[in-house]
Design a protein around this nucleic acid. Sequence first.
DNA 1: CGTAATTTAAAACGACCGTTCTAAAACGCA
DNA 2: TGCGTTTTAGAACGGTCGTTTTAAATTACG
Lengths: 199, 199
Amino acid sequence: MARPREFDEEAVLLLAVERFWERGYEATSIRDLAEVMGLTSASIYNTFGDKRSLYRRALDFYVDHSFGDRVGRFEGNLPPRRAIEAFFNEIVARSLEDAKRRGCMLVNSALEVAPHDPEFQRTVANVLVQVEAFFRRSVEAGQRDGTISNGQSADDLARMLLGMLLGIRVLARTRPERPLLEGLIRPAFVLLDPGSVAH
Amino acid sequence: MARPREFDEEAVLLLAVERFWERGYEATSIRDLAEVMGLTSASIYNTFGDKRSLYRRALDFYVDHSFGDRVGRFEGNLPPRRAIEAFFNEIVARSLEDAKRRGCMLVNSALEVAPHDPEFQRTVANVLVQVEAFFRRSVEAGQRDGTISNGQSADDLARMLLGMLLGIRVLARTRPERPLLEGLIRPAFVLLDPGSVAH
DNA sequence: CGTAATTTAAAACGACCGTTCTAAAACGCA
DNA sequence: TGCGTTTTAGAACGGTCGTTTTAAATTACG
């Protein structure tokens, strides 16, 4: 009953994700996006609303397909300790093959847009809480099956893992060096080893 | 022989630091800066050159007076293990009292401007190398005086501490919660304890 | 006291910003 | 086939961007 869209909404959203991911929110203009997405600005506004709404869609898409997907693939399919290791190994591998040094879009937005936008602040904080919860569940399960040390609380170990993860994400944008990233996580994994802590 | 300046260069530079620190590079306009610094844009351009040059001056000023000052106060004046602890305690304290959630200007710039600007990339990477070197020197000294475990290489422990530091800096902008930040560093300090690692 | 030098204030520059408007184009259904 | 509806292309909107210009104000020195 009307003229149909000439593009696939999810396909162009992915293109917007890549642009926002690489350049950030402020430095990406609607004209940038229109060019990359192969649309006119009118089509963007028709489909996604204003720039902020498009960024919100892009960030949600990113979170679902990066962190959400990763947790879904590892948790349950791997023993808990292995799930944590696989999680970090994949992060390090991605960081090292990230030629554009885009880092993590969530962390980028945590520093660029979240501090000045309460809604994004909630969103980002919430994802970080979920990441921490994934670590805590995995640590608790590992402590039960004997693959992770009982020397420290699962809460603290999960917090430490969250900190390491964010640190890696920052370094991925400025010093994506293999010895640095791999050396960084080595002590953390030693700390998880059963019997590592004198108590 | 000519009309003198009506302002103190370092004083207005500090005002520029605070604005860039809080809002980032892209979101801070010259008109913003002029208002905050109490100058006209002509005076800014006369004194500091263009926006990017002013940001460079601001970032250098920040680095000297935050990280540089901190290392200077702790290293040498405290036993090495205590220097590391004092360093982190101060970072956590600052993060928790940072009502504006400004985080660390260096980390903010590492994610916002460094990825698209080779010169800032070098600057930021260089500071991170210096932070890592401070950690490594302290760890090595601590291993010699017996206050830090020999179970892992000073290189790896320094890398881990760098990662933790950056992780705290990210969390300071989105989840500046005391239990989180304090719990995060606790396992790291346990890992430094002599005899903590089975080997 | 006047003149050279510099800093101020404020307007102005073109470019680009996010966003909207105007028409023409393209479909489903009567 | 024409009508209603939506999407397209592209110009246009006012506003703000970084930066420069113009001219008045302020100093030190001859």
